[in-house]
């Protein structure tokens, strides 16, 4: 991000990335179209996938020219964004509070630690049965894992702040709110963004699980529906789309982190 395409292409560092993607596609092609090993012959080869993906008249009804493709993307993206935003606000808030107040930590941390390991998939039945709409159920499931990843990393971030900064801040005349704003928040930002990266990843994972089981649209639903209809090409298109969206959303989180933590990237600049 932030560098021009031309510089990216001419930079030898990015050739490795191109080579590995090319190698993967080549291997996929050889296994499915050339060697046609047992079990691999069921898989669509990359040429078939790309042809269908880019075709104005796709045989299985899914390509970049069909509106259903964009509807599914839109549903999934909006669900992830809403869940991720909720997880960020509530997760960072709860994590900061846990790290900031010893008393609150003693009360709330055991509860958080008990609920945290419950896999998002285990939440599906309750979420669907209890929440008024299926849509809310899917968003809740997407939210829950992202939320705990954010809480835990934020808490660890606050706890990792060197005590000396709290002392220095008090010496210089800070009130509790100043310490919170100028020490606790910036001091835990690197860990918060690590948490948000993880949260974005698990949000996509749980989203697909939620959509497969209870959704009416979205990429997870698309993959599941094409599974029932044995439309292999569409399954692969759905998977690759998920991969690209996941990559892009993580890159956005990284970019936001970089913007907010200039001191971190500049330090790396000096060390290099």
């Amino acid at each position: 991000m932030g560098i021009s395409f031309k510089r990216w292409v001419t930079n030898p560092d990015s050739w490795g990335a191109v080579a590995s993607i090319f190698g993967f596609v080549l291997l996929w092609y050889v296994l499915t179209a050339v060697l046609r090993l047992p079990r691999f012959d069921k898989l669509p080869d990359p040429v078939a996938v790309v042809t269908a993906w880019l075709s104005p008249n796709p045989p299985d009804g899914l390509s970049i020219f069909t509106s259903v493709y964009y509807m599914d993307i839109l549903y999934s993206v909006v669900r992830v964004l809403v869940s991720f935003a909720l997880a960020t606000v509530l997760g960072v808030g709860l994590g900061l509070l846990l790290g900031w107040s010893r008393v609150f930590f003693d009360y709330a941390f055991p509860l958080v630690e008990t609920l945290r390991p419950i896999p998002p998939i285990a939440w599906i039945p309750l979420a669907v049965l209890v929440l008024p709409t299926t849509e809310m159920g899917v968003i809740f499931i997407t939210f829950i894992a992202a939320f705990f990843a954010t809480v835990l990393n934020t808490l660890l971030g606050v706890q990792s702040i060197d005590q000396v900064y709290f002392r220095a801040a008090k010496c210089l005349g800070s009130r509790p709110w100043d310490v919170f704003r100028h020490v606790v928040i910036p001091g835990s930002l690197p860990a918060i963004f690590t948490g948000l990266q993880v949260a974005m990843g698990v949000a996509w994972i749980s989203l697909v699980a939620g959509e497969m089981i209870s959704g009416q649209a979205g990429l997870g639903y698309l993959i599941y529906e094409d599974y029932s209809n044995l439309q292999f090409v569409n399954i692969v298109i759905g998977m690759l789309t998920l991969g690209l969206l996941g990559y892009g959303s993580s890159a956005l989180v990284r970019l936001a982190g970089k913007r907010l933590m200039t001191w971190e990237s500049r330090r790396r600049g000096v060390g290099a």
Partner: peptide
């Protein structure tokens, strides 16, 4: 702030 400490390993806020 009437008695300010300068710490052993430095305590400048790295984020400022």
């Amino acid at each position: 702030s009437d008695r300010i400490v300068v710490f052993q390993n430095g305590a400048l806020f790295p984020w400022k």
